[in-house]
């Protein structure tokens, strides 16, 4: 009898474990995607604080942040954005399911980000005015994907 209950308990644990794995697929891929976004946000934050006048302009720090943004755009993320890893399958993701079923032009939008990041890289160390001017296109390139590919955030 005791054996039976231990067996039942183990089976329950195994079953719920399997079920939760099934309910939340690609958890690590999603974490990695979001990690890249946070990494970008932190670096853009360095530039944004200078653009807003919250901290004093520092060419070296601005350059470092812009370089990091460009590097982040060079990561191969193809193994992170896999079919079955949208918000429809895993609520931790904010990616719309259409991203994997329709052509939303994501590739071109990612290229827009790289272009904007490179423009920031070219401008960031050269003075505050250039940095400020590069913020708009950079934000627009972020919004390009968020507009079509992300579920509502509110």
């Amino acid at each position: 009898m005791k054996k039976f209950f231990v067996g039942l308990a183990l089976a329950t644990i195994a079953f719920t474990g399997a079920a939760s794995a099934q309910e939340a697929p690609f958890a690590k891929q999603i974490k990695a995607r979001q990690g890249i976004m946070v990494y970008r946000a932190l670096n853009i934050g360095v530039l944004g604080a200078m653009a807003k006048g919250e901290v004093e302009y520092n060419a070296e720090a601005a350059q470092k942040a812009a370089d990091a943004l460009v590097s982040s755009g060079k990561l191969d993320v193809s193994m992170l954005y896999v079919p079955g890893s949208s918000n429809a399958e895993n609520p931790d993701s904010t990616v719309k399911p259409e991203v994997f079923t329709e052509d939303l032009g994501i590739g071109a939008k990612a290229a827009d980000f790289n272009t904007a990041a490179e423009a920031m890289q070219a401008a960031a160390g050269g003075g505050l005015d250039g940095l400020k001017a590069a913020m708009g296109p950079l934000g627009k390139s972020c919004g390009g994907c968020h507009e079509v590919a992300r579920i509502p955030q509110n």
Partner: peptide, 22 residues
């Protein structure tokens, strides 16, 4: 800043229709 570049104070960015508004 949000209405100019779309960046929130956390440096997330506007999505959905608001991205167009920005």
């Amino acid at each position: 800043e949000y209405l100019t570049s779309g960046f929130t104070p956390e440096y997330d960015s506007a999505g959905g229709h608001m991205a167009l508004v920005v």
